[in-house]
Amino acid sequence: MSIRATKRVKLHDNKNVSDRKQKSFGLDLPQSNILASLPEDLVCRVTNFLDARTLVAFGATCRSFHDLSQKNAAGWDNLCEVLWRSKVHVCAAARAHPSRKESYLRSIRDAQTRQSITIDELCYDIETRRGTIWSFRFKESAGDEWTNLDPWYYGQPCRKMVFLKDGTVQEFSGNTNRDNSNDSHDRMSAAPQLAPPLFDFGFERLAADNHPVPFLAAHGREGPRVRVGNDAVENLIDRPVNMTWRFLSRPMDLPPRPNGSYLRFNVGGRDVPTYVIRRSPTGNWGFVMESCWGLYGSFELPPQRISSAHQQRS
């Protein structure tokens, strides 16, 4: 017998041994697929342990698994919940999509490509207590006159500001406890406290020159109170000077971008430098608004280390 014929006989014998082993364990794989024979809900319990990439690969193995991997119960419900739990803003259209797989993919695509904000993402609703509470701090380029009045430069939390849909801006008083629910990612749930010095691009500095604290106590008026739970309330603080906001799409000194890419404040009848809106570089899907003087974050901005110079002043 030739060498080639001998090899064919050995391969045939090995195949017979492999087939016998499969049949002895009830694994007649060429004739049936074990996973495909299981109930769908049981297979979904298994696929819920897969990450997104592996779940997509699972769906590429055969037609029946492809159909199953498209279903929300296959794991996309859980993947969306885990992904969005740590994110500040999730695209509303993506969240509302009936397919959780599409919701997952569209929310990621939106966070990677959209650099403009919607009015619902920008604003806070007093009645429902839902919306964004913005953290604000001055930039060092604003100068010592401003940073000396900024609690962030003394290691304290940033001022909290809210934008209302009527075009006004209010300061938020109290301690923010974030629930990461995304529909209302910022919510006040503590008793009110004295608001930090009111900020209004010039009026505050003039007032603080001679009366830094008594002036604020006398002229910072409480706005509407919103009850939270049994006892705690949220406070909006009326500003001594009217402050409004509006979207811009084409500022004079900046390139045109979609609506919601630029924001302009008007304080006491005077416009101030434009704020540029973009996604946060931290990957939390939040937004930041930045001008030559200040920075807003739709999430809690990281604390500042107290410099020795500010410690001496305080």
Rank of each mutant, 00 (worst) to 15 (best):
R4V: 14
T6Q: 13
V9F: 06
V17Y: 09
R20S: 13
L29W: 07
Q31F: 06
Q31D: 14
L35N: 12
V43L: 12
T47M: 06
A57Q: 12
F58A: 11
C62D: 10
D67K: 05
L68C: 07
K71W: 00
C80K: 03
E81T: 15
V90M: 12
A93R: 10
A93Q: 13
H97A: 13
Y104R: 06
S107D: 14
E121G: 14
D125S: 15
T128P: 06
F136M: 11
G143R: 04
D144G: 05
W146E: 08
T147L: 10
T147S: 11
N148H: 05
N148M: 13
D150H: 02
P151L: 01
Y154G: 02
P157M: 03
C158K: 00
R159L: 04
R159F: 03
K165I: 07
N177D: 13
N180D: 14
Q193Y: 10
L198G: 05
L206S: 12
A207W: 00
H219A: 11
E222T: 08
G223K: 00
R225W: 07
R227K: 11
D238P: 00
P251L: 09
P251W: 01
M252P: 02
P255N: 10
N259G: 09
G260I: 09
G260E: 03
F265P: 01
V267H: 03
G269N: 09
P281V: 03
N284W: 02
V288Y: 01
L295A: 10
G297A: 14
E300R: 14
P303Q: 04
R305M: 14
A309W: 05
Q312H: 09
